[in-house]
Nucleic acid binder design. Structure first.
Length: 545
RNA sequence: UGGGGCGUCGCCAAGCUGGUCUAAGGCACCGGAUUUUGAUUCCGGCAUUCCUAGGUUCGAAUCCUAGCGCCCCAGCCA
């Protein structure tokens, strides 16, 4: 009681929060309950991250809870492998997630009972038209549909047929259970939508128990209601489905099968990122065609790929906050995601030296055989992150970019006659370049050793990193570029052939055994230890050129 | 074409029970300061205008009318 509740970070107002707050204030809803309902037919991608963070975030923010629920109503497309990867990704992204997964298939019995109720109460019927006939009689945008010749079957006949369907007495496609609403509704989704179809397929969880499976349209509202979901968030394309969502729930509640308060569907705009393709169909194809190494290839826009790439949950949270939620069909620049990752990584990544494009430098007045240990902080602003030491010697690797025989204007790194600081080491002066050995020649100024009183006696503008040739640890570094070259890629034709680059780099010795999830190679960017090498997560911002 | 949505700065996005809007905030961008990462941080600048045209009103991004533009729906997919 003593301490005032910690003030939550002020969240950006949005239409969903407003709805929730109104429902809470009016007493319509006691506690917020949301859900994230993926279909286990692929790996989670960046678009899902927005939805996951939205649903779990809202629940946390309003002291409610959020379920991970698999929408496994189509056994033909769904697999256990996907279930496992999805659970793992959600766990990774949302620390407070308890790892418990729910399944639509656990409600199949109840859904079936609801179906029998709808039939008995005259709200559903078994249609025996072919798929093609159904399509034709549905009408189109300009013409109303026409009633199926089977629409007026008696409740008894419908019930009998439905049970036969359930018991596997009919072939796939022979019949379908439909809601009896109106074939003339201007909303095509209300023209007697299908509820159950016959699919004599083995389900990854219920096995061969069922011969009929509910449609998403029918199953989803029931799943929400059974779990006591208060706010069912989905993407814009389901907006036209909402009247049916409400219709179904009301019928079932009238029949005493569901309790108030009933869940309400709220739609928001899905994430669209430039240079990224988030279609599951295409992602599956990239994996199958081996265009990438797998679902977790660091170039993939999947969460498992992002993780290997070095992207972090905290970065994603910043991203979700930054892009907000609305009904506006917007495109987010990919650079926004990168910037969010940079922002988080800047705070937590230990700094290290890595020479990605090595050029040899010899300090001619530095005694051969001499070695010194140079101390460098792990983070420029966080002394609590400690320090590490690096061996310094006469021959060093420096970045090819950091030396120019003939510098362009405003270039302030190494060139003949110029002085530069070897970061956390000495100030050196370039005295030439030996073409025969491809070596930069320099002399050092002994009194300028970092951390000593004379360190600042010589002012220099440039600061470059280095690695002792004798002590360097070599490793492969994967440099990733965008997987697609177009700003709004359409498909595989837009793949960027240069999305993967491999280089051999010279690293400070401690990097032989990296402890951090992501480190910063100073002046380069953030890199994630990955498979005996490193994956470049994202570069540092660079105002030079 | 019928229905459903959306249109506020380069990109997001508040505001939309009308006045406090000559429109919040973030990102980007442009200056400038600090800096042993040309990074980070810091400070300053950045829509007389809210898709368009009318109307209501003392007063409109907010209300009304008519247009225009974009997205979604005609799976026994989700």
């Amino acid at each position: 009681m003593s301490n005032p509740a910690p003030k939550p970070a002020p969240s950006q107002s949005n239409f969903i929060r407003q709805r929730i707050e109104a429902d809470l204030a009016s007493g319509k809803v006691k506690a917020v309950k949301t859900r994230f309902p993926p279909e286990p037919n692929g790996y989670l991608h960046l678009g899902h991250a927005k939805s996951i963070l939205l649903n779990f975030g809202l629940a946390r923010e309003y002291g409610g809870s959020c379920n991970l629920r698999f929408d496994d109503t189509n056994p033909e497309k769904e697999e256990q492998e996907y279930v496992d990867s999805i659970i793992e990704s959600v766990k990774w992204l949302v620390p407070e997630f308890d790892g418990k997964a729910l399944f639509a298939s656990d409600y199949f019995d109840f859904m079936y009972r609801c179906a029998e109720y709808l039939v008995s109460s005259g709200n559903a019927y078994v249609d025996s038209q072919s798929a093609d006939e159904m399509k034709r009689s549905r009408g189109d945008f300009t013409y109303p549909g026409t009633d199926s010749p089977f629409r007026s079957r008696s409740a008894e006949e419908n019930l009998m047929l439905l049970r036969e369907m359930r018991d596997g007495k009919h072939a796939d496609g022979a019949h379908v259970l439909r809601a009896k609403i109106s074939m003339t509704s201007p909303n095509i989704n209300m023209r007697d939508p299908a509820l159950y179809r016959i699919k004599r397929t083995t389900h990854h969880r219920t096995g061969d128990k069922w011969c009929i499976y509910p449609m998403y349209t029918y199953a989803h509202p029931i799943e929400d209601a059974v779990e006591g979901i208060t706010h069912s968030l989905c993407t814009l394309e389901f907006e036209d489905q909402r009247p049916f969502y409400d219709w179904l729930l009301r019928k079932l509640a009238d029949g005493g099968l569901l309790q108030q308060p009933l869940p309400q569907q709220i739609e928001f705009a899905r994430l669209q990122l430039t240079y990224v393709l988030l279609s599951k169909r295409l992602l599956i194809k990239l994996v199958e065609d081996k265009v990438v190494e797998g679902w977790d290839d660091p170039r993939m826009p999947t969460l498992s790929g992002a993780r290997r790439r070095g992207h972090t949950p905290e970065g994603f949270r910043k991203f979700a906050e930054r892009v907000g939620v609305s009904k506006e069909n917007s495109w987010i620049n990919y650079s926004v995601l990168e910037d969010c990752m940079r922002q988080h990584l800047d705070e937590v990544a230990p700094r290290r030296f890595a020479v990605l494009d090595p050029l040899k430098l010899v300090i001619e007045n530095y005694p051969e055989g001499q070695e010194e240990m140079m101390e460098a902080p792990n983070h420029p602003k966080k002394p609590e992150m400690g320090k590490r030491t690096m061996p310094f010697s006469r021959e060093l690797w420096i970045e090819r970019e950091d030396f120019k025989e003939t510098p362009e204007p405003k270039y302030f790194r190494l060139f003949p006659g110029n002085k530069v600081r070897l970061r956390f080491g000495y100030v050196i002066e370039c005295i030439g370049y030996d073409k025969a050995t491809n070596t930069v020649r320099a002399k050092y100024l002994p009194e300028t050793r970092s951390g000593t009183p004379g360190a600042d006696s010589v002012k220099v503008k440039g600061n470059i990193h280095w690695v002792s040739v004798k002590h360097a640890h070599q490793a492969e570094i994967r440099i990733y570029d965008r997987l697609f070259k177009g700003e709004k890629p359409q498909g595989q034709d837009d793949l960027n052939p240069g999305s993967l680059g491999r280089i051999r780099a010279q690293l400070e010795p401690g990097l032989a055994a990296p402890e951090a999830v992501v480190v910063q190679f100073e002046r380069h960017g953030y890199f994630a230890p990955d498979r005996s090498g490193f994956s470049r997560t994202v570069t540092l911002r660079d105002a030079w050129q």
